[in-house]
Design a protein around this nucleic acid. Structure first.
Length: 938
RNA sequence: GCUCAAGUGGCGGAAUUGGUAGACGCGCUGGAUUCAAAAUCCAGUUUCUUCGGAAGUGUGGGUUCGAUUCCCACCUUGAGUACCA
């Protein structure tokens, strides 16, 4: 009987499905364990071999935990709203829902053939109305909440309204917009309904506001900060400009501090935590307000060095700062306007690339120093960013290199306020290494006490106070797109109104085209049935709009991260029509125990999801304020691209080892045309594209044509994609699973190389041959030898450690060693083979199931208990040689194999005592770790 | 510039209380089997070597009886981030 993996794999995949083997119940006597993958966006290209890497790892862990007696939740679903389906719809007119449905089918088929232990009965799709009903509901909850700084918690907006009518807003410490006016309780009650609503928008955790946004004209939509890389859009690489627009925003800044400090309580990688810390960007310092001379205005700055306030010799505003126009003097107006125009013409990208050039213009205005009352010239310069802090800095050239360079450039004085330092060449920035001088009441103080002293002084004269500043901005939540969640919002007199929970979901309307309207409205502006009837509580035709009972609906949709910010909770109770997830399910599953996914989501998805989790926790809907205890980032599997060399301007190709001095242009060739020795199949290449059919080839000496290889991201456009379907067809799913793990450490980036798969493939064949001969099953009831047992227990120990440490690559090696050893020992004993099969089954479940069944078991191997490691088989006898080094002695003990752990410890301790006595020291405590060599140095 | 991670054969990579460096696999070499090929099996495969050995984990130092492992400095590569006041 040969190893027919195709038949076996199909058989067991069907068996698991029919027997609901991996269905998780939300109650059990067993302890729970929740293993989650980042759900995929179902793209039209289908899966390549890189995609399943993380899924295989999580599947191994989930199967392992089941063997260990846990009730495991291991779900999967689709992040199915997104740009590609919409762009395809724009091109072809096909509804994105249809495209998405087709892509999901392909994904499902591809995932199924790999043999994952997903509980598909819990599948979620973010684009399904049953799901986004609850995304809309969460949005309403956010709208209905404000953030109380005194107890660090989100509360219902009704409580804020109650406070306003009792005591106004002076006494309330809440997160709100800076320009919120103060009012008393009487004033509040006197406000019109609309005025009240406007004020409340300043407090709500999602709010509508005219804000400066990142507008991408090419994509026709706004983008969040994390969707922009190096000044261009993450998707497509299009330029992004700043623009003021009325948009929905999420007040994530309210949670900045908790998002930062709570990183300490979760087991995520340091690299990932670090990038979240950078993104949040906390700086401790002070706000200082400078009066403008002869002008009714104050300029507020943020500084981390308030101790250097006596070193201020000028101020710099960002060119976009709102006071610039007002304070500029007549004489300087032309120069300032020119400068602003020149800056605005430069793209973000240019500005970032060109850090060296120092530019700026004097406004002609002066500010007044809060203590010395001396005038300070106010400049504008593009090294000050409008988007950070207040968009204005107090420049201390002696203590900041950028201020220093600016002062040098424009001949501004550089007063030194540091004791005993040299600032003739550069600024002195090491705050810990000096004391303050020439600074009146701060003289002689160090950084810490000077800061404390000056903040007190500023507060006294009401010109400033201690402040913590965050880089994290509120997240823009509107997208001018079709294929996203509609907002459950309609407008009365320009003010947003929420639709009641019982009328959700508000489903996406039909449109005839998926483009923005001619007037520049989002695609939903094309919908004809898109108005809200407050009497009938349903969506009606636009012609019914009368602004009395029927009102226009919001035209924007939610961004891609809306649906992915809470899906892990929905898996706990995916079909609940009355709640986003029931308390019973939450009480049982609590949180994700292990989350596996790519590190590219470090500052996007993973930050937003933590934010929503904390918010829903505050409002009492969730039991935990962090959603994932442990997180692992799997590395990417890269493709090995093949390049053919063409002589520029001709149709002649040169073998890569035959290139002389020609001007060469490298062209991607499909990797399927190239063999393991980097030789091109010329015929296949010629018939690939019409233009190559007449091409000429300068061959290598041995008659072959060599290509150049390079490792790149796997992508269709680079013709280096390897499809898992092919691998399953030729080698089987178990081989694919083993090989993906065998390639290298999970977290590492590594290139795919199909040639190496023969190693794991022949391992599977050997395993099969060890059990199954020509006449059927070979396993029997012979007693296992000590050698057999040693091999088994060594493997149990190593594999258990490997899995616990997510070191799946070494496990595969350990299986190979075990099978090689057992083959050499001609071991056919069931006593050994059964536990070995259970060990292997998380990695190669199909072959393990088949052999398990052949051994006569009726149940699935997935329910078997993980074998127990017995250290006594592992104690190695080793060479016994005392060696003398400079009078010190080292002993390696030789111990009999069948001692228990306690006996070993006793023996070792006895030796330690003897040696210690001889060496004249006190005996140390002895801890024996199985499989380790025991050393005693005397 | 800053932060983090990593440097081991021809290649992917093993090696954690500091204890025989190179496990396992690919590739390569030789052999068996075959009319032949594929497949399979066996042996070898860090480098140098006068065949006794010697050197060797990016470089230079240090700690230690003993360092791929710990410490210091430097070099290289990768990732993230960037005029953050």
């Amino acid at each position: 009987m040969t190893y027919n993996f195709k038949e076996i794999e199909a058989k067991w995949q069907k068996y698991w499905e029919q027997n609901h083997t991996f269905k998780a119940e939300s109650s059990s006597d067993k302890p729970k364990y929740y293993v989650l993958d980042m759900f995929p966006y179902p793209s039209g290209a289908g899966l390549h071999v890189g995609h399943p890497l993380g899924y295989i790892a999580s599947d191994i862990y989930a199967r392992y935990k089941r063997h260990k007696g846990f009730n495991v939740l291991h779900p999967q679903g689709y992040d199915s709203f997104g740009l590609p389906a919409e762009q395809y719809a724009i091109q072809t007119g096909q509804h994105p829902a249809i495209t998405t449905e087709e892509n999901i089918k392909t994904y499902r088929r591809q995932l199924d053939q790999i043999g994952f232990s997903f509980d598909w009965s819990r599948e979620v799709r973010t684009s399904s109305p049953d799901y986004y009903k609850w995304t809309q509901w969460i949005f309403i909850q956010l709208f209905d909440s404000w953030y109380d700084n005194t107890i660090d918690k989100a509360l219902p907006i009704s409580e804020l309204v109650a406070l306003f009518s009792k005591e106004g807003n002076e006494t309330i410490d809440a997160v709100c917009d800076d320009d919120t006016p103060s009012f008393t309780a009487t004033e509040w009650t006197a406000f019109s309904e609309k005025e009240q609503q406007k004020i409340l928008l300043n407090y709500r955790l999602t709010y509508l506001a005219k804000t400066e946004v990142n507008w991408c004209p090419e994509l026709g939509t706004v983008l969040a900060n994390d969707e922009i890389i190096n000044g261009v859009s993450e998707r497509g690489g299009f330029p992004v400009v700043r623009k003021k627009m009325t948009q929905w925003s999420m007040r994530i800044s309210a949670y900045a501090d908790r998002l930062l400090t709570d990183l300490e309580k979760i087991d995520w990688t340091d690299a990932l935590k670090e990038s979240q810390r950078n993104w949040i960007g906390k700086s401790v310092g002070a706000a200082v307000r400078f009066n403008v001379v002869d002008f009714e205005a104050k300029i507020e700055v943020f500084t981390t060095r308030p101790d250097t306030i006596f070193g201020v010799s000028f101020m710099t505003l960002a060119p976009e700062h709102e006071l610039v126009q007002a304070i500029t003097t007549e004489a300087q107006k032309a120069a300032v306007d020119d400068y602003i125009l020149a800056t605005s013409k430069r793209s973000e990208r240019e500005r970032m690339a060109d850090v060296k050039t120092i530019s700026g213009v004097f406004t002609g205005a002066y500010a007044e120093h809060p203590f010395t009352k001396k005038p300070i010239p106010i400049w504008i310069g593009d090294y000050v960013l409008a988007g950070y802090g207040t968009g204005a800095v107090m420049a201390v050239p002696c203590g900041d290199q950028r201020d220093y360079d600016f002062a040098k450039q424009f001949g501004i004085p550089i007063p030194n306020i540091f004791h005993d330092t040299d600032i003739s060449e550069e600024a002195f920035t090491d705050k810990a290494k000096t004391k303050i001088a020439n600074s009146e009441f701060l003289d002689g103080l160090d950084f810490k006490s000077a800061t404390k002293r000056v903040v007190e002084a500023l507060e006294e004269i009401k010109q400033g106070e201690g402040k913590i500043n965050y880089r994290l901005r509120d997240a823009v939540f509107s997208r001018q797109r079709y294929w996203g969640e509609p907002f459950p919002v309609y407008y009365i007199d320009g003010m947003p109104q929420m639709i009641d929970k019982k009328n959700l979901p508000i489903s996406l309307p039909e449109v005839e085209k998926y483009l923005p309207t001619e007037e520049g409205e989002p695609p939903l502006g094309r919908a004809e049935v898109w108005a809200w009837d407050t009497q009938k509580n349903k969506v009606v035709h636009n012609s019914k709009i009368d602004h009395k009972t029927v009102f226009p609906l919001e035209l924007n949709t939610m961004p891609g991260w809306a649906g992915s910010s809470w899906y892990f909770n929905r898996y706990m109770d995916p079909h609940n029509a009355d709640e986003f997830v029931s308390q019973a399910a939450l009480n049982y599953w609590q949180e994700v125990d292990l989350y596996i996914g790519g590190s590219e989501h470090a500052t996007g998805h993973l930050l937003y999801a933590r934010f929503w989790q904390k918010f829903l926790f505050d409002r009492g809907y969730l039991p935990k304020d962090e959603f994932a205890k442990k997180l692992i980032n799997q590395g990417m599997i890269l493709g090995t691209s093949a390049f053919v060399a063409r002589i520029e301007g001709s149709n002649t190709f040169v073998s890569n080892d035959k290139i002389n001095n020609e001007n060469i242009q490298y062209i991607h060739a499909d990797v399927s045309f190239v063999n393991a020795s980097d030789e091109l199949n010329i015929e296949a290449f010629k018939s690939w594209r019409k233009e190559f059919s007449t091409a000429e080839f300068k061959l290598s000496d041995d008659g072959s044509f060599k290509v150049k290889r390079e490792v790149e991201k796997m992508s269709k456009s680079k013709y280096n994609v390897v499809n898992p379907d092919e691998i399953c067809e030729i080698y089987g799913a178990d081989a694919l699973r083993l090989y993906e793990m065998f390639l290298g450490p999970l977290e590492q980036y590594k290139p795919w190389n199909t040639a190496g798969i023969t190693g794991v493939s022949s391992f599977l064949k050997k395993l099969w041959k060890l059990y199954v001969g020509d006449s059927g099953l070979k396993a029997d009831d012979t007693t296992a030898t000590k050698e057999n047992l040693k091999t088994l227990h060594k493997t149990i120990k190593k594999v258990t450690e490997d899995i616990e440490q997510f070191s799946f690559n070494t496990s595969v090696s350990n299986f190979m060693i075990a099978v090689n050893e057992l083959s050499a020992q001609k071991c056919t004993s069931r006593e050994i083979l059964e536990p070995l099969l259970i060990l292997i089954s998380p990695y190669a479940p199909h072959i393990a199931e088949e052999l398990w069944a052949k051994l006569g078991y009726e149940s699935s191997i997935s329910t078997a208990n993980f074998p127990i490691f017995e250290p006594k088989y592992l104690v190695e006898s080793s060479k016994n040689y005392p060696i003398s080094f400079n009078g010190k002695m080292r002993f390696t003990l030789e111990l009999p194999m069948d001692l228990s752990k306690e006996e070993i410890e006793e023996t070792v301790l006895a030796h330690e005592k003897t040696v210690a006595q001889l060496a004249g020291r006190t005996p140390k405590k002895v801890i024996v770790v199985p499989g380790k060599i025991v050393n005693i140095v005397g």
